[in-house]
Amino acid sequence: MNQLEIRDLWASIDGEMILKGVNLVVPKGEVHALMGPNGAGKSTLGKILAGDPEYTVEKGEILLDGENILELSPDERARKGLFLAFQYPVEVPGVTIANFLRLALQARLGREVGVAEFWAKVKKALELLDWDESYLSRYLNEGFSGGEKKRNEILQLLVLEPTYAVLDETDSGLDIDALKVVARGVNAMRGPNFGALVITHYQRLLNYIVPDRVHVMMDGRVVAEGGPELALELEAKGYEWLKEKVKEGA
């Protein structure tokens, strides 16, 4: 029961079916990778997990430690410990990171968080990310470079300490140093009380965040699963061979 489980999930947007029966399990304590060609539906899955109202879930279940969360609003899911690092983090002008993070932490913990406690937590996270305090007084993602936006997502991950996190291409657009920093952030979260689904296109990230398992999505379904070696195979051979295999199987 201690797992994030997606059961036969079908979902559409604007009348177009994007997810066509996704089955996937991330046990608590494990980090899994989700790979797959552009347009496979990886981001869609992430957003639906987080409760994006743009999508319509046609069928299936999402079970968070055994509880179906499909009827819950995005904020209720977040307060239950689910976190999505966005592929494209959103800019919110005029709202400082410090102000926002404190409100989010209070929501997550369901209580007031004093300034001292907040600072202690944020400072630790900033140190781990090699980030300057001055970022806290900047407006949320406004004018941030691609890499800064990604780093900011990991900052939120570290401060909010969710139980399950989906990281959507947090590595894309990062230089090698930033990549290491992000990996350090995720690895710091690793432990028996944390599960993650890391969406990526590149083996590069998986050298630093070694996944317990790898899932491959294509055309709205998970079509292959395996150990870390599956990612290496994809890196070497691309997706064509898998496509052929899926066709043969069908």
């Binding site: 904020d75 926002f100 989010a104 939120q156």
Partner: peptide, 14 residues
Amino acid sequence: DEQIFYLQSRGLKE
């Protein structure tokens, strides 16, 4: 709506 969803996904009510 995207801003609302982003903030909600961090635990803030709508």
